[in-house]
Every structure is written in structure tokens, then in C-alpha cells.
């Protein structure tokens, strides 16, 4: 039996097992809804086997799992489910890419990436879960990644 059916969708994507409280930031990282006219529903603090979680459902749009991988930064346990004709057709567990570009601002105020230079912020992933990253430029490790999303 499905654990939750707030909103059943015919076709689209479900991002499940998002760290509770981070659904809105996940949407922000994915640039949704700006880049999409799909109907989106967000469920927060949903009870599950592993405690509370957030869920995002995007109708009529199949998210590219590789594009979504970067949300592992703030939702390392998330899964992407592609729904076709009401059924889960594909399931993918997010996996942090080796580098995170343009998503997190460096926490070091004197880091060159925080000045007027023609570069995007860039971080090297040193651990996946819980995520640890360090700035490519100054090597500083931000502790509160979720607070540093650009």
C-alpha cells in the first residue's frame, strides 16, 4: 500500500524523502517553478518510516535525474520517481556530483569568489552523506550548506 496519496498524478515526477523542511530550497535549486508551468504540489513534514520528510510532485514533467542530483547537497536521501500512467516507472536515488557549481555561496567573506570576478562559485564534494564540500578557490568548508544556497 502507498504510504501517501495527498495528490495522485497521472504523469510527472515525485521527489521523495527530502530532508524535512528543505522542500522549498529543493525547488529553488531546481529553478522550479520559474522554468516550468507544471502544477507543483509540496507536502512538508510527512510522517514516514524514517521520521519526517518532505515530498515534491511535479505534474507532466519528467525531471532529468542527473539535473536533480545536485539537491543531494541539502536532501542526501532524496529519490526521484518518474510517474507514467499513475505508476512509478523509474526510480533514482540522488547522488552528489563531484563538483557543485553556482549553487552555494562561499562562507568566507574574503574569498575571491565573493568579489566582483567573472566566476561562478565552485565547490569540491568531499563527502556525500551528510554532505561536506569545500570551496575550490579558498578551500573553506561551509558548515551550514542549506543557509548558503544562492
Amino acid at each position: 500500500m502507498r504510504e501517501l496519496k495527498i495528490q495522485t498524478i497521472k504523469n510527472g515526477s515525485v521527489i521523495d524523502h527530502i530532508t524535512a523542511g528543505n522542500a522549498v530550497k529543493v525547488l529553488h535549486i531546481l529553478g522550479i517553478p520559474k522554468t516550468s508551468s507544471s502544477t507543483i504540489s509540496v507536502a512538508m513534514n510527512v510522517k514516514s518510516k524514517f521520521g519526517k520528510k518532505d515530498i515534491v510532485k511535479v505534474e507532466n514533467r519528467e525531471l532529468d535525474p542527473q539535473e536533480v542530483d545536485k539537491i543531494a547537497l541539502i536532501a542526501p536521501k532524496a529519490t526521484i520517481n518518474i510517474i507514467r500512467d499513475f505508476e512509478v516507472a523509474e526510480k533514482h536515488k540522488v547522488k552528489l556530483p563531484k563538483e557543485i557549481i553556482g549553487i552555494v555561496r562561499c562562507s568566507n567573506p574574503t574569498c575571491v569568489s565573493n568579489f566582483n570576478e567573472p566566476v561562478e562559485s565552485r565547490f569540491i564534494v568531499i563527502r556525500e552523506d551528510p554532505p561536506r564540500i569545500k570551496c575550490y578557490f579558498c578551500e573553506r568548508e561551509p558548515e551550514d550548506i542549506a543557509e548558503r544556497i544562492i
Binding site: 575571491v112 568579489f115 579558498c138
Partner: peptide
């Protein structure tokens, strides 16, 4: 340079 990471940026 006074900014941290400036040399890495320069190399880019």
C-alpha cells in the same frame, strides 16, 4: 593578492 583563493582564480 589579499583575497583568499585569488591565485587559484588567476590560474583559471
Amino acid at each position: 593578492h589579499p583575497q583568499e583563493g585569488a591565485a587559484r582564480l588567476a590560474a583559471e
